[in-house]
Amino acid sequence: MGIDKSNVRFVVHYDMPKSIESYYQETGRAGRDGLPADALLLFGYGDVAVARGLIGNGGNAEQNRIELHKLNCMIGFAEAQTCRRRVLLGYFGDRLEQDCGNCDICESPPERFDATEDAQKALSCVYRVGQRFGMGHVIDVLRGSQNHRIQELKHDQLSTFGIGKQHSQDFWGNLFRQLIHLGYLEQDLANFSVLKLTEGARPLLRGEMRLELAKPRDTKVVEKKSAAKKPAYDGALFQELRELRKGIADEQQVPPFVVFADATLAEMAAQMPKDKWELLKITGVGQHKMARYGDAFLRVIRDHLEKAEN
């Protein structure tokens, strides 16, 4: 991306970069003039398989290991359930005390749950294995795997062996990634990506704080919800909302879908929200977009309803 322009408003990745360094550099082309800009990453697990295959073809084992770690970090970013700005800065060793309020996770937060006990189990297991193993091995210990490696190391005799068997591999993988993103754990790239506790993990392990984490998004449920959310909508109102969206997009010099997607406008035209609380229930409307565009769209909806009543 040899682009040296200050007014790039939109960066799209049609497949996933192989590292966060590449992604950060490429998305950094947008908004250099200080005005709002958007980045869209299209992510599929086919990309992961291709990238891993290319890395595996390399002749240098040590370099392959490093590249695979970087790819796994990029996958973790794509699957993140926490503020993506936090994930990016955390990868480079910086900490963000508050969520950014701009990314898709901040604008449409996932459902959360009290993860204190599960997080304590995870952190305790990292400690019990001596902070010398990667995520996969720690999860195997938590889930009570009887593989040869665990038996050879006598990790089946640890107090944390099998204490997390009620949860799936995916559940623990998601939880560990969130603990890494939030700064309770770090991965040592120079030492085979082993997990190590940070100072921030101590109060959590001691029970001095509670921790809420995001529930993994169930793609099947999302697909079912999306299929169900296709109500009949008011065509005239839909066109009025599109005209408003185009005016805003032209003024901000961004594509219209950056303001709201057609699906969001269609749902507005179907549900006809009357206040900000109802508007926030519309798919694609988060706190950030509510603050920027909510009043204008609610005004069009109210005017339309008043005309219909008269």
Rank of each mutant, 00 (worst) to 15 (best):
204 L>K: 05
206 R>C: 01
207 G>H: 01
207 G>W: 00
207 G>M: 05
209 M>V: 12
210 R>A: 11
210 R>E: 11
211 L>V: 03
211 L>I: 12
211 L>R: 02
212 E>G: 12
213 L>D: 00
214 A>H: 11
215 K>V: 02
215 K>M: 11
216 P>A: 05
216 P>M: 04
216 P>F: 03
217 R>F: 02
217 R>Q: 06
220 K>P: 05
220 K>R: 14
221 V>G: 15
221 V>R: 13
221 V>Q: 15
222 V>N: 14
222 V>Y: 04
224 K>P: 04
224 K>Q: 08
225 K>L: 09
225 K>N: 09
226 S>F: 14
226 S>C: 13
226 S>Y: 10
226 S>G: 15
227 A>C: 10
228 A>P: 00
228 A>R: 15
228 A>G: 12
228 A>L: 15
230 K>D: 07
230 K>A: 13
231 P>Q: 06
233 Y>I: 15
233 Y>S: 14
233 Y>L: 15
234 D>T: 03
234 D>N: 14
234 D>E: 04
234 D>S: 05
236 A>N: 15
237 L>H: 09
238 F>L: 14
238 F>K: 10
238 F>H: 09
239 Q>S: 04
240 E>N: 06
241 L>C: 13
242 R>G: 09
243 E>C: 11
243 E>N: 13
244 L>C: 03
246 K>F: 07
247 G>L: 01
247 G>A: 01
248 I>K: 07
249 A>P: 07
250 D>A: 08
251 E>Y: 06
252 Q>S: 02
255 P>V: 08
255 P>W: 01
256 P>Q: 07
256 P>W: 08
257 F>G: 01
258 V>N: 02
258 V>K: 03
259 V>Y: 02
260 F>Q: 03
260 F>A: 00
261 A>W: 08
262 D>Q: 11
263 A>D: 08
263 A>S: 07
264 T>E: 07
264 T>V: 09
265 L>C: 12
265 L>E: 04
267 E>H: 06
267 E>Q: 14
267 E>A: 13
268 M>L: 14
270 A>E: 14
270 A>L: 11
270 A>M: 11
271 Q>I: 05
272 M>Y: 03
272 M>T: 10
